[in-house]
Nucleic acid binder design. Structure first.
Lengths: 199, 199, 199, 199
DNA sequence: CATGAATGAGGTTTCATTCAT
DNA sequence: AATGAATGAAACCTCATTCAT
């Protein structure tokens, strides 16, 4: 494949690797698999990445990074609820537009202290931090009952999103579509979390 | 002496394997690791299990099996809500009493079509099925608004439990304790899902 | 080769490795080559040695170690010349009885600061140290002219032995035999170094 | 500009290669290393040399060739001793003025039948041949005792020179200087080889 | 029943060499 | 002439599994 343009190579390999990782999982994916899918020789791959781990890390870092970056911090000039919904929409957008990567991050939650966990744990920690911050503000305002355990509620919300994303990502036949989730994200009212599951 | 303990050997290996799998993850765990932890020779291990996968599968099957088995189907002789809460409590019990196994099932959610997914997917499918069944009944009774997407709500509930279990299982320092979750499970009102996060 | 006795395996591998290293040199020798020669599976070799380097190091360390150990330090109870000759004889013995290893240490004198040099340099340094010590004593006694540069003379002697050993070791057809050298070693008179080459 | 310097390119690469080979040894030196040092692209290098081996061979051939060429064959018009000393001086000159190349030829004495040995063995054989020729003449003249094993004496002399050159070449800190050797070479008396090490 | 030495398939990685630009 | 991205053969090493004792 001497014809492909240099600057594309890296992206090409990343895209193919994402597909293979999504399909087979990290461990079951061999460098050979990625090479075949990318139509690239083994040695070529090593020109762009240090090793298999590096490819995976790059994918994860790019994806989680862009999700985190799209989340805007709270400003006082706008209702909190509006900002929250906008951020949720962006995240749902990121997820729906990258099925492969979503599948990877919701499926490769390997054992703690193991290979990649650190990144993922950090990523989820940031999301929780964000949600918890928003909920705490609302609680201070009296919009959320003081009896609510804000930390647990944050986990609940994160778990909800992860689970739906997971079910969607592993759904080979596309039985589950993300439209309802998108609607929910738009109209989501924190104070009425139960409503989340409504249409 | 040794012969009388035959069945013990198997259990011993399983218990040790659970610990190692929980700590290192499936792939990073070698047969050697399990042998060392179990104080058993390599050949011996293969007298009790077909292969590494078999050990893992047995652990998962036992654990998910007992969780499923503890869930009693609905009878008409008792309020649905009561039955639901009892089942949730049993499940939370199972989880809190088996931290290693919990960690494994929430952490090894490898990619679809890969090695172990089938079991886990089936397990979660059954949980969803149960929850969805309950919610549907409630919806028919008019206890839940007809606008609610019951399937999404089920995923939300499952995701919530998984996430909290995950955070608890990977929490090395035991910062997070499960008591709030246990209380919630006992008093959980489906119709007021938001309350779940309260204390 | 499940029949070979455990304790022999290591020695068997070392002996075969010595032959292959002697024939092809370190770099041209692959683990495969050693396995074939030893009639041992690849994995088996790694039960006994960490890697190729470890095998080589072990060989060198054993051989140079035994040469050094056979050299007895000077005592005052015996004429220096006698002790010196005895040590030379032992060394020549060690060399002649281990053609493979001799070939390796005289042929693999790779570039400084590179992989194995340290050991070899240290080994030769010790030999020089020994010789220099003896010569210095003789010089103090007046047996060797004060004009002689003892350090250079030591190198000369070491170089002489190395070169003859080298020529013998690389001599496939055994044209050169070591008997003259053995005789020389026995009758060697330091003060009359020129005589060394006599019969 | 560039075209005029075509021949320079080759020399430039050779000089840089010598440095790298001397520092790292043949095997540890990669084509990349040589390219970096020479500030030349990989493909360019292959315009001037067939392969890595070719570069190395060229270096060795040039150096050993010039040493051999500088040795003048014996004429009857001049005392043998004088001619011998002049030749030794030339050789010592060649050595001292090319530390990199000297280091290479004394350090890369890889195993027989291996890659480059042939050249080196031939080179040393020629030196021995020359020395042996001279000694034999002297022996015929009665200048050297008939009891002397001329072949061994030749090896001894060659080994001496190689060893001193080796110690000098690998001596990073320049503790050992070649001046004594140069003096020795000038005043060297074969019949009094022992004196060689004097100052 | 129990052992653990031996196996070898299968993976990762390197690097001399080529060739389209 | 010069370039350097691409190649792929060949090496290393691991580890689940077997089997003679």
């Amino acid at each position: 494949m001497r014809t492909a343009k240099k600057e594309n190579r890296r992206e090409q390999i990343l895209a193919c690797a994402a597909k293979v990782f999504a399909k087979k999982g990290y461990h079951a994916t061999s460098i050979s698999d990625i090479c075949k899918k990318s139509d690239v020789a083994r040695g070529t791959l090593y020109l762009y990445f240090e090793n298999k781990r590096d490819i995976f890390d790059t994918l994860i870092k790019n994806f989680t990074g862009s999700i985190i970056q799209d989340i805007t911090m709270f400003s006082k000039d706008e209702p909190l609820q509006l900002q929250f919904n906008r951020n949720m929409c962006k995240m749902v957008d990121n997820i729906t537009q990258n099925k492969d990567l979503t599948k990877i991050i919701v499926s490769e939650a390997v054992g703690l202290d193991s290979e990649f966990d650190h990144q993922l744990i950090l990523f989820y920690a940031r999301l929780v931090e964000y949600v918890e911050g928003a909920l705490t503000m609302l609680q201070k305002n009296g919009d959320i009952s003081a009896h609510i355990n804000v930390r647990l509620l944050s986990y609940s919300l994160l778990g909800t999103i992860k689970e739906i994303a997971y079910q969607w990502a592993i759904d080979g036949g596309n039985v589950l579509d993300m439209d309802p989730l998108i609607k929910v994200a738009k109209n989501f009212k924190i104070q009425n979390y139960i409503a989340f599951a409504g249409e």
